[in-house]
Design a binder for these strands. Structure first.
Lengths: 213, 213
DNA sequence: TCTGAAATTGACCATACGGTCAGGATGCCT
DNA sequence: AGGCATCCTGACCGTATGGTCAATTTCAGA
């Protein structure tokens, strides 16, 4: 594994060093999983000696926890567009846009989160039970209001949210499969745009928030 | 980790032994990932000495490969309903039914597959490039025919397939998250039914294969 | 220039892991 | 009953991992 930075014998400020390590850790955890990732490999990717990692993050688990928390923060921010919207077409459309952008820009983060949840969320169970539960309930209230206002069909808000998460995160978590089916090439700008529009069209029309074609 | 079978000092037939090990391995790989899983833990779950595992499966990687292949076979079978259908409402509806049933009955298998793909498919890349590519292209042809026959809106078949995979497998891969948001309780029969119907309604209506509500 | 807190690092350790092996147990077939 | 292939298993081994530590370097502030 090559060094990420060829000449960084300079002393790093705490913030820079932590950011560098977290970035390397996110990549390695995404590619190998928690169990498959090694501190040595993370150190190599970051271009630092392994002992230096332990100086900033005492244990592998603490480092991992920090990575997962960072991702969660990004996701929560994407939710802001939801509440500011007038109706489902604008709100859900913007949410799909935001989540697809995250899938494209932070695929590693998405994978780490997916891996964590798939393994029973041993590290962030409390987040699921508190923050995520609250967030979900808040969005359900909004969707129910839209339904009562006749702006969309009476769809179960919970399962609609799951569908939004599933479809958008799929492009990050299963990106490798999608690239392979795309002739082993990354999706182009146009293909990402097509994917996004497809999701928006099908879901918005599916919940009766768009005029039928 | 307790023994799965309290008294199996009897000699096992090859087929039974392999099935027992594969079942235990699927569970452990799903819960811990490839790197996090240990042969010792798989052995404990299967109720066998570790050395016995290596008698049937020489290496951890070979055992893992077998687990992944088994899942892939199950998924391919679910595709049969697709081709036998008259149109999208029947074909895609039945496919969603089949895949949701798999998510419910084989959540561990789904997780192992997801984990494998997320980590770049190191073990089953050839399957993606051959079998899965062929399968996908075949289904795309069917969907394009439905579109040209005016049975559904002109949706990009590829992204529609990704959406079908994403939404159905989400209930297996993110089952823990869904259960937590369900008050830490597994989905009931009725809730599974509701999830299935929601997906079918939104997607089929979204692609113009259902009369609008 | 001096000082001390922060940062860096190579060497080291205990443990746990995947895998091996030799020898014993079992039971089918003649 | 006896022979033989299959099956089973405790003990063992080399390696790699997460983590520690003491010694050294760096640099901001006095």
């Amino acid at each position: 594994m090559p060094k990420a930075s060829p000449s960084n014998s300079k002393k790093l400020r705490r913030q820079e060093a932590e950011a560098l390590i977290l970035s390397a850790a996110e990549k390695v955890f995404a590619e190998a999983g928690f169990g498959g990732a090694t501190m040595q490999l993370i150190a190599d990717v970051a271009g630092l000696p392994k002992a230096n990692l332990h100086y900033y993050f005492p244990t592998k688990e603490l480092l991992y926890r920090q990575v997962v928390q960072n991702i969660f923060e990004i996701w929560l921010q994407a939710a802001d567009v939801f509440d500011q919207a007038e109706g489902p077409e604008e709100g859900i459309g913007a949410y799909i846009d935001a989540k697809m952008e995250i899938s494209r820009r932070h695929p590693n983060g998405s994978k780490v989160w997916a891996s964590e949840v798939m393994h029973g969320a041993p590290v962030i169970q409390d987040y699921l039970e508190t923050t995520l539960t609250d967030w979900t309930n808040g969005r359900i209230t909004v969707i129910e209001r839209w339904i009562s206002e006749g702006r969309m069909a009476p769809i179960d808000p919970r399962h609609l949210l799951y569908m939004l998460w599933a479809t958008t995160q799929h492009y990050a978590d299963f990106g490798h499969q999608i690239e392979t089916l795309n002739g082993s090439a990354p999706l182009s700008d146009a293909q990402w745009e097509a994917a996004k529009n497809n999701i928006k069209t099908i879901i918005l029309r599916g919940i009766g928030a768009l005029p039928t074609a």
